[in-house]
Design a protein around this nucleic acid. Sequence first.
DNA 1: ATGTCTTTGTGAACGCGTGCACAAAGATGG
DNA 2: CCATCTTTGTGCACGCGTTCACAAAGACAT
Lengths: 254, 254
Amino acid sequence: MATGRTHRPATRSRGIPEATVARLPLYLRALTALSERSVPTVSSEELAAAAGVNSAKLRKDFSYLGSYGTRGVGYDVEYLVYQISRELGLTQDWPVVIVGIGNLGAALANYGGFASRGFRVAALIDADPAMAGKPVAGIPVQHSDDLEKIIQDNGVSIGVIATPAGAAQQVCDRLVAAGVTSILNFAPTVLSVPDGVDVRKVDLSIELQILAFHEQRKAGEEAAASDGGVPAAAARSDSADQGPDGDMPAVMPA
Amino acid sequence: MATGRTHRPATRSRGIPEATVARLPLYLRALTALSERSVPTVSSEELAAAAGVNSAKLRKDFSYLGSYGTRGVGYDVEYLVYQISRELGLTQDWPVVIVGIGNLGAALANYGGFASRGFRVAALIDADPAMAGKPVAGIPVQHSDDLEKIIQDNGVSIGVIATPAGAAQQVCDRLVAAGVTSILNFAPTVLSVPDGVDVRKVDLSIELQILAFHEQRKAGEEAAASDGGVPAAAARSDSADQGPDGDMPAVMPA
DNA sequence: ATGTCTTTGTGAACGCGTGCACAAAGATGG
DNA sequence: CCATCTTTGTGCACGCGTTCACAAAGACAT
């Protein structure tokens, strides 16, 4: 296709900013969509729009990977898909275990985005003996007694924790002891892990609370704008200030 | 309880850094746990450890809210729980709708963290007529034809999208048109919304890909360390380089 | 009342990420 | 072969967030 594959071997590898790494999957998704529509090349402007970012940022991000792209033309879609996939490590197979097959764990097991892109659900693990053997998403659930063996037999290095908060740290410890070095945690707890183990956290409750903060701020500004006066102190008093101190539900498992 | 309630009315409200807002729910969770154990006060050091952050960061975060806390003693747990709750807008009730009651939507509906903390699932909405009326988590699913009416009748301002990617933008547009101004998006798509609408994105596939990147980097460093030589270029070649260009599964819905 | 000791609150320095704006690169047409 | 035009790649400046380090504040004992 296009032209000059400078093909710098990206000895750069280390030195890719974390913020850039976090955006690469976004670009990859947009590029994959283009690839499916057989679009041969794409400009930074177009791709940035598709990924919902600034075009300068996108170009800078790509510059960390190497000098792919052709001035005056843009980026070769297929080539870039491959380069990003390689950089993210998606050209190899990643066996994953999901621990905690409740509502969320089952949803994750069924989630299509897992199976694609090199992630393979190697096993589902739950502490409830009644679950053992029961198939979820076509995979039989195994009991957590066998956790260590499952990890080792399948060479698993990525674990997903979807247990209740109370069990999460214990599960985490066992995963790490068995050789897992990357953990995706859905339980609402702070996990402590030794150095060298990565933890990423997905917390539905926190996301909602952040939204609530901004929502409240919006409502406050509206109210302040309509009665003209004090910016936020007045606006916030709509439902809170009648209970001046500690009279709110202090008990909740979130 | 302790002592000096300076009680600055926090006219500060605007000017709380986004990064701080994102950590407030974390502090709140740690404080709630302490509150349940009837711990009266806590130092920034202890609380920071419980929340998994630096103590200086925590103190600076709290300083944006006002001057709660007593030097030489620490923070009054109950008081701080209330202040953070108020700041986050959790002292009021937030009705939420969940659109798309598949595996994930059902898991969200059942998730305990939603019900607590002022978030109330006002309705579950799905496009499948077969789902209509069927109860999930004790709430009957309603058909998406009635989406606008449901939003308006319940005064919903926060919507959760758990539909397939293809339907997400359309659902989003309808939510926004009906008055929703905050959206939590689980669909793997970039949503475009008008100004004034907040979108937060939770993307399981992206989190996994970020983990894979770091996992690969670890494996590469190990390999490079053991054979001594080229840092990353050699290490990466383990499974990728034999297919020099675009020979990988280019089709996938993630 | 005074001194000591603990812990907060914050000024200042630093580093990372973002966005602008432009020079260099290369394609394309004559 | 040269001119023009498009688009990349990046130097630079700016702003946000993090961390250090310390002075001020207050509790507590004597």
